[in-house]
Amino acid sequence: MLLGKGRDGVILTVENLEVHYGRAKVLHNIAFKMDEGELVTIVGRNGSGKTTLLKTLGGFLKPSAGSILFRGQRIDGLGPENVALKGIRYVFQDKRVFGELTVKENIELAAYPIKENLEKAVQKVLSVYPRLEKFLHSKAKGLSGGERQILLIGRVLIGQPQLLLIDEPTEGLAAKIISEITAILLSMKGQFSMIVVEQNLATVARLADKIHIMKEGVMFKEITDPEMIRQPSQYENDL
C-alpha cells in the first residue's frame, strides 16, 4: 500500500505552521516530518490544538503561515476535497456516519469519487470487521458507536489511501471496543502512514512509532525511543 514512496522516505513535512481562529493564534510554529508507513500519535490535553492540527492537514482549515508538503507537494490551502483526492483520508472525532444511508451506501459514497469497484470496496471494509456484513442493508444510524467508528475506519481504506488522519478513535467507547479498534489499527500499521490523535495513553503506547506531545498550540515534545513510548508513565506528566 505504500505507493510512490519518496526517495527520502518522507511522506509529510510540516514547516512553521501557524493557524488562527479569528484573531486568536491557536497553532504556533508547528514543524515535524513523518516517514512513509509510520504511525505518529499526537497527544495533549483538551484545547492543546491536536484536532486543529489534524483539520489543517486535512484541508479544513487554512494556515495563516507555514507550509504542508505531502510527498514534496504543497497541499496547504487546497480544500478538503482536493486533499482527499491526493489520498489523505480523515476519520472524524464525532463518529458520525451518514445515518440516513445504509452501511453499503456509506461505502458506495466513499468508493464513487475514487472510482473503486463497489464490491471490492465492500470487501475491503468487511476485511477490517466482518461482523458489519449483517448490517450492510441497514441504515447506518442504527449502528453502535464502536461499529460506526469501525465503519469510518474501514471506509478510509477504500481506494489507495496514502495517509490516514484519525481523530480520537477510541474516545467514549467501551473497553472491549477500544481493544477491537486498537487491534484494527495495529493490523493496519506498516501498510499505511497514519497520524492518530489519541488521549488514551495505554492505546498510544501500543500503537505509536513516534509521539508528539502538544501543549497550548505548540509541539512541546517529540518521543521516538520505542522503550520510552511503551511506558506512558514516562511522559504522562508532560501532558
Binding site: G58, F60, P80, E81, A84, Y90, F92, F98, L109, P113
Partner: peptide
Amino acid sequence: GIKENETRVNFLG
C-alpha cells in the same frame, strides 16, 4: 449525503 453533512461529503473527494 450532501443533505446530511456536506463537509463530510467534501472530504470524501
